[in-house]
Amino acid sequence: MLLALQGAVSQGILWGVMTLGVYITFKLLDIADMSVDGTLALGGCVCAVAVTGGMDPKLALLLALLAGAAAGGVTGILHAAFDIPSILAGILTMISLWSINLHIMGKSNVPLLAHPTIFSQFAAATGLSQTMATTVIGLVIAVVLVALLYWFFGTEIGAALRATGNNEHMVRALGVDTRMTKLLALMISNGLAGFAGGLVCQSQKYADIGMGTGTIVIGLAAIVIGEVLGQLTPGKLRSFGSRLVAAVVGTVIYFLIRAIVLQMGMDANDMKLLSAIIVAVALSIPVLVGRARTRALWSKGGEV
């Protein structure tokens, strides 16, 4: 059991990289971008093929990131330049990536076998166990990424991007082409998903055509869990940096919950259903609470 939980923590951190990407599209731009299902797998496939081809595992990760960003760019162009609704643009990219990923790998599953990964190299250099090595590297990467994103969204371009999700009308009136900011957001988001796919591939030592299925739901569930946690902390996590941290922590908790329910005997295939229910419930609650408040405020009239 303890081993399973440790594994869940390390997996959660790696998948948390993807959640950071989903956070950008979903929370900042209010787009539920389905492309991440495809781009996470793309990152994994590209990484597996590159590593088995003899490429340095670090470079392979960079390649996974770039591949994800390029695919996100396709969604961005479909959505921003051709006005295709974001959800459909994402689905189109996701579907095409299924075929593309199969072409990249040439089959549906590529094991890394004895090829080195960043985790195995680090474990060998430090003498840590594979799980510990994964956790440590995952933590370092997550911290660096949160810091980078925090910096980026404080810059002129980053602020314009945040404002785009807030009020497109204003942003255009201030001279920013909102098509460019949306394109950029989708590229960053899917770049992170591709990077996460590469990390997951190296940690599990294989890439699989189905590894990205349901990624968006995991990302959304993780964000929701992170937000609930935020509400429970005294500061309510209002600052942007703490919300990014909450997104990663939310992912870790998601994987912990998953490990626990699996240990309790739940079928692994039911996990997707559970995730979807978590997201659906979490998104419905604020609406229901809002309605209940409105009703509570209603009075018969007459006296004020």
Partner: peptide, 27 residues
């Protein structure tokens, strides 16, 4: 005219760069 989820100073900074190239310096 304004971005509700952003601070007053962030809104003003966005506006102060109206029509200018935006880069990676602090907003």
């Amino acid at each position: 005219g304004t971005a509700a989820d952003m601070q007053i100073e962030e809104n003003l900074a966005l506006a102060a760069r109206r029509g200018q190239r935006r880069g990676l310096s602090w907003n």
